[in-house]
C-alpha cells in the first residue's frame, strides 16, 4: 500500500517532466483562471466598501432655533431614537459647535477674532441623525416635518449622495456580469486544456497502460497518477496565486485608501477571509481538474 502510494507519485512526476511544456501551459491557464476569480472578488470588495464609505457619510443635520430649549432638543432626540429607522442621533450643543468651529478655523485669526468679539455664542444646537439604512431617510425627514418640530427647528440639512451611490452600484453590477463571463470563459479553457493534458499523458503512456492492464493492475492504480498529476498542477498554480497576490495587494493598498477616503485594509480583509476565499478558489480549480480528468480517462482509458 505504502509502496503503491510512492509509485503513483513517481508516475505522476514522470508524466510531469515527460510533457513538460504541456504542464507549463496547464499551470498557466489555471493561474489565469485563479487570477480572474480573485480580481473579481477584489473589485467586488472594493466597490462594496466604496458604497459603504459613501453611505456612512449620509446623515441629516437638524439645526435648532436659538430659542429652542435644551429640554425640547433632548426630547426631540429621544423621539428620533425611538424610531426603528434610526441608528444613532448625535447632539452637538452650542458650546461644542463653538469648539468645533474654532478648531476648524484655528489657522485663520481674523475669523477667530470676529467670533470672540460677539458676546453671545452665535451657534445653535445641532442633532446629527444617521439611519440604519440609506433608504430610510425619506421616512425620517417626513417625521421631522411635523408641526411641533417646525417651531423649534431652524433648518434641516440632508446630504444625500444618492446619485453617486447609484452610479457605483451600476458599475458594480456591470463588473460582476463581465467578471462572471470572464471567469466562465477561463474556466472553460482550463477544463479543455486539462482534458487535453490528460489525453496526451494517456497517449504518451499507452504502452505502460497496456502492460498495467494486462498484468492486472487495478483501475485506480492506473488512473491515480493522472489525477495526482492534475492535483499537483492545481497546487502549483494555487501557490503561484498566493505568491503574487499579497505583494500585488500591497502595491494596490495606498491607491485604494486614496480612493476609499478612509482606511480599509485589503490585506487584513483577505487574511480574515483566507479560508473562505482561497478555499473556494482551490475547490473550484480542483473540481475543474477532477471533472475534465475523469472525462478524459473515461474516453481514453477503456478496459
Amino acid at each position: 500500500m505504502f509502496s503503491s502510494f510512492f509509485r503513483i507519485i513517481k508516475f505522476a512526476f514522470q508524466n510531469f517532466y515527460r510533457n513538460f511544456w504541456l504542464a507549463i501551459v496547464t499551470i498557466t491557464i489555471l493561474v489565469v483562471t485563479l487570477f480572474s476569480i480573485t480580481a473579481l472578488i477584489i473589485l467586488n470588495v472594493i466597490s462594496t466598501q466604496a458604497v459603504k464609505s459613501i453611505e456612512d457619510k449620509i446623515d441629516i443635520s437638524i439645526y435648532f432655533k436659538t430659542e429652542a430649549e435644551d429640554i425640547q432638543i433632548i426630547k426631540t432626540r429621544s423621539e428620533l431614537l425611538s424610531l426603528k429607522e434610526v441608528k444613532e442621533v448625535n447632539l452637538i450643543d452650542r458650546e461644542q459647535a463653538m469648539v468645533f468651529f474654532k478648531e476648524r478655523h484655528k489657522d485663520d485669526p481674523t475669523i477667530l477674532e470676529s467670533v470672540e468679539i460677539l458676546k453671545e455664542n452665535p451657534f445653535n444646537s445641532v442633532l446629527v441623525v444617521k439611519a440604519k439604512n440609506s433608504e430610510y431617510y425619506p421616512e425620517i425627514l417626513k417625521v421631522l416635518d411635523k408641526e411641533e418640530y417646525n417651531q423649534i427647528i431652524e433648518k434641516k440639512d440632508f446630504s444625500d449622495h444618492k446619485i453617486i451611490i447609484n452610479k457605483i452600484s451600476i458599475i458594480k453590477t456591470k463588473i460582476e456580469k463581465i467578471g462572471l463571463f470572464v471567469i466562465a470563459f477561463f474556466a472553460l479553457i482550463a477544463a479543455l486544456i486539462v482534458f487535453n493534458t490528460v489525453r496526451i499523458a494517456i497517449y504518451t503512456h499507452r504502452s505502460e497502460i497496456k502492460i498495467m492492464k494486462l498484468v492486472g493492475a487495478s483501475n485506480w492504480f492506473i488512473r491515480a497518477p493522472f489525477l495526482v498529476e492534475e492535483f499537483f498542477y492545481a497546487i502549483i498554480s494555487f501557490l503561484i496565486l498566493i505568491a503574487v497576490f499579497y505583494p500585488a495587494i500591497d502595491f494596490l493598498q495606498p491607491h485604494l485608501n486614496y480612493f476609499l477616503e478612509y482606511d480599509f485594509d485589503l490585506i487584513s480583509y483577505f487574511k480574515a477571509n483566507f479560508a473562505l476565499i482561497f478555499g473556494l478558489e482551490f475547490l473550484t480549480i480542483i473540481i475543474i481538474n477532477a471533472l475534465s480528468s475523469f472525462v478524459a480517462m473515461k474516453k481514453y482509458l477503456k478496459a
Binding site: 509502496s3 502492460i211 498495467m212 498484468v215 492486472g216 493492475a217 487495478s218 492504480f221
Partner: peptide, 11 residues
Amino acid sequence: AFAAQVCGESN
C-alpha cells in the same frame, strides 16, 4: 519488476 510494481507488490 514493472509488472509486479503496478500490482502493488512490495519492493
